Amino acid sequence: MTLANPGMRYGGFFSYSKYDVLKQLPEKYVPKSAFFTVAPTSKEVKKEMNRLGLEYPVILKPDEGERGSGVEKIKNDQELDEYLLANSPNIILQEFIDAPNEFGVMYVKYPSQEKGKITSIVFKGELYVIGDGVSDLITLFKTHPRAQLYIDFLKEFYKDQLNMVIKKDEIFMLSKMGNHCRGAIFNDANYLIDKLDVSLFDSISESIEGFYFGRYDLKAKDENALINGDFKVMELNGVNSEPAHIYDPDNSLMRAYKDLFRHWWRIYKISKENKEQGYTETPFPTLVQSLMNK
Rank of each mutant, 00 (worst) to 15 (best):
F103R: 03
K117Q: 08
G70Q: 02
Q113D: 14
P89S: 10
I97A: 11
I97F: 14
E72D: 01
I121T: 03
E126G: 14
L140S: 13
L84G: 06
Y110A: 03
P62H: 04
N90L: 12
E126H: 14
G125L: 08
E95R: 00
I59R: 03
S69F: 10
E95P: 06
I59E: 00
D136R: 09
K124V: 06
I74V: 06
G131H: 03
E79R: 13
I92C: 15
K75W: 12
K73W: 12
K117S: 14
G68A: 00
L60R: 12
G104S: 12
I92W: 13
P62L: 04
D63W: 13
G125R: 07
P100D: 10
V134A: 14
G131I: 05
S135M: 04
D77C: 04
S112V: 06
L80K: 09
K142L: 04
K124N: 11
G104R: 06
A99C: 11
F141A: 11
L93F: 14
F123D: 00
E64W: 01
F103M: 01
K75V: 02
F123Q: 09
K117D: 03
I74Y: 06
S69T: 02
K75F: 03
G131A: 02
F103V: 01
L140V: 13
D132W: 13
D98Y: 10
N76H: 14
I118W: 07
S120M: 07
F96H: 08
L93K: 13
E66G: 02
F96R: 15
